[in-house]
């Protein structure tokens, strides 16, 4: 099926800032296909991001776009959604932005189950500032601020989202390009907080410091570590060592925040009559 990328992109804003070999472009195309598939009204859809490489994405998109401060996307987005619940809200950002400096906003957006779609481009590093370790950089790996190997344990962003209360959580990788849009479509259609984690690669600041000789090596890794949820059930703990589950990891129905607040308004108005 042919997708109309052009109609979603602001004329004259490309090329993007991302390096050759960066997975963000693949993830962005998946996001565009998903938004196109859902037929979102461009005037009635806000795209919100924080700071970092991935957070530059909304600037390229022909929607209501808000490039906020570092980590604050979910908090700004919550304000938009609460003030105008009829708007579609899509957040985009990286791992450091979303779950380090923005971690508090991220978990509380999940807890509230506010109706938005948050796509995390997890490339395991702070790319824009030159490759400092993030909360998802694997323990032992090299970054510009872990020259002797990363001593930090890592966050599993999807597990964090599930634990915090997001009602739709899915994960895929930049290698699995066609799965990206399918999962984001489900996330957009889901009523409540949807988190889609896209594992991707930063050859410039992460790959070159670690064991990856080329972008192809990094893509191969994404291919190798991904195990679809359905297949994981048939695998032994040993076989699952070092793997990450992909697909829809969690989905539940729970009251959505703006709908809950509509009830608050009804109660307040009934009491004041």
């Amino acid at each position: 099926m042919a997708y109309d990328y052009e109609k979603n992109i602001r004329p004259g804003k490309l090329p993007h800032i991302w390096c050759p070999g960066c997975g963000h472009g693949i993830a962005m195309k998946g996001l565009i296909r998903a938004m196109d598939t859902c037929g979102l009204d461009k005037n009635n859809t806000a795209m919100v991001s924080g700071i970092g490489c991935a957070s530059r994405l909304p600037g390229y998109m022909d929607y209501c776009t808000l490039h906020t401060a570092h980590g604050r996307a979910a908090a700004f987005a919550t304000g938009i959604k609460m003030a105008k619940p009829e708007m579609n809200v899509i957040c985009v950002g990286g791992d450091g932005d979303g779950v380090a400096i923005g971690g508090n906003h991220f978990i509380h957006a999940c807890r509230r189950n506010i109706d938005m779609t948050y796509v995390v481009f997890n490339n395991y590093i702070y790319g824009m500032t030159g490759g400092q370790f993030s909360p998802t950089t694997p323990t032992g790996d090299k970054a510009s601020t872990t020259p002797y190997g990363n001593p930090d344990p890592t966050f599993d962003i999807s597990k964090l989202a599930i634990g915090a209360g997001a009602t739709f959580v899915a994960r895929t990788t930049a290698f699995h390009a066609t799965q990206i849009d399918k999962l984001i479509v489900q996330g957009i259609k889901h009523k409540g907080m949807a988190v889609i984690e896209v594992l991707d690669d930063c050859p410039t600041t992460y790959g070159r410091r670690n064991r990856f000789r080329s972008v192809v090596d990094m893509m191969k890794r994404l291919k190798d570590i991904a195990v679809p949820v359905a297949a994981a059930g048939k695998m032994s703990p040993e076989q699952l060592e070092g793997k990450v589950l992909t697909g829809v990891l969690h989905q539940e129905d729970r009251p959505e925040y703006c709908e809950q607040y509509t009830e608050v308004i009804k109660r307040a108005q009934a009491q004041s009559e």
């Binding site: 906020t68 604050r72 919550t78």
Partner: peptide, 17 residues
Amino acid sequence: MEDEIAAMASILGGALT
């Protein structure tokens, strides 16, 4: 909101609508 920064962020998001 979950913290003071988020409270400020939320009003900016709200104001933009």
